[in-house]
Write a protein that binds this DNA or RNA. Sequence first.
DNA 1: TGTACATCAGTGAACGCGCGTTCACTGATGTAC
DNA 2: TGTACATCAGTGAACGCGCGTTCACTGATGTAC
Lengths: 189, 189
Amino acid sequence: MRYSADHKAQTHDRIVKEAAARFRRDGIAATGLQPLMKALGLTHGGFYAHFKSKDDLVETALLSATEELTQVCEKAFANPQPLHSFIDTYLSPTHRDSPERGCPLPTMAAELGQRGQPSPITDQGVEDRLARLAAALHNAPNADEQSVVMLSTLVGALLLSRSVQDPQLSLRILDTARKALKQQADDVL
Amino acid sequence: MRYSADHKAQTHDRIVKEAAARFRRDGIAATGLQPLMKALGLTHGGFYAHFKSKDDLVETALLSATEELTQVCEKAFANPQPLHSFIDTYLSPTHRDSPERGCPLPTMAAELGQRGQPSPITDQGVEDRLARLAAALHNAPNADEQSVVMLSTLVGALLLSRSVQDPQLSLRILDTARKALKQQADDVL
DNA sequence: TGTACATCAGTGAACGCGCGTTCACTGATGTAC
DNA sequence: TGTACATCAGTGAACGCGCGTTCACTGATGTAC
């Protein structure tokens, strides 16, 4: 059944988007290609018309997720108080409860590190994020160092808030980290 | 082949220790029971003489890892400058390169959160760690908040330093976070 | 414009593999007499 | 002290399952005449 010119590109994109969501929500190992294709109304055999292997999809999906996230971040950075706005978004209960649409670092960094040959997206992603934070700090004298600490705290706090069962403790982690980071940002600027 | 009185307890302990190491190094899903038992010179069938299921082992191994880690932490806290000593240990290249003997949070928090029914060890572990940090801060007025930020930064920085490929960037994350946290500790005290 | 053909995205059965788990068994050692 | 028996930690084949991957195929549509 031959389809219109851009049909394949559209399907390709649907697979990438769905995979990017599942990888972040469930992890790479726990995401099966069969259920993934089924969720899109397709059969698993067709997968290999789009990707060389699961690893190929992982790389493509992670790039897509990173790119998508950069745009979400830029939206926050476009607000009047860019850093405050970004910190509020990153450490919001919404972000905590929607890993499938959020930052890949807290969900996938550990698994990517454990895999045999991790893709360079982590390095590039971390460097980009650090550079973006440093820029938002208006390149203050110690902006480079502050950005490393900030990113670590952001990722760590979100990870902890997600792994804890007690809703009160989870919220306490988010709120405390959010408040402290905004204070820290003000001190630097 | 009947063994001496405490032989079974010893084998049980060996399985727990090996599992605690593998779960932290490779993740839970990637750790097979067959390879695990083989590494101990046993066959996989005997596993069920010791544990009800893999989940049972996961719970036991995580408790063991947490307990073991608490002792390592206390060693650091026993030094002249307890907080500095602890921060130096946690964010050392040694800890980064030995996840199998280190803190379970950076390696396993994401996977535990993604599992269906995570054990309460995360909550208890996080609370314990927070309380220990607050105590080390001599219960300064905002020690409760500082401890949350500290733990987030510790976990986040270690996670990032592990997931990055570039050794220079990895070391930069560790060094920067270590320096900033020690400064932060001094400010509070 | 109408027909024959080529294309190729998607189908679905099949593959080998390792997983967690089960189970009938073995056989060295502690215990009972 | 010597012998018969019970115990039970560990053995290893087998189970069903879902995984990633392969492949001969289908059939609607674009293209050539």
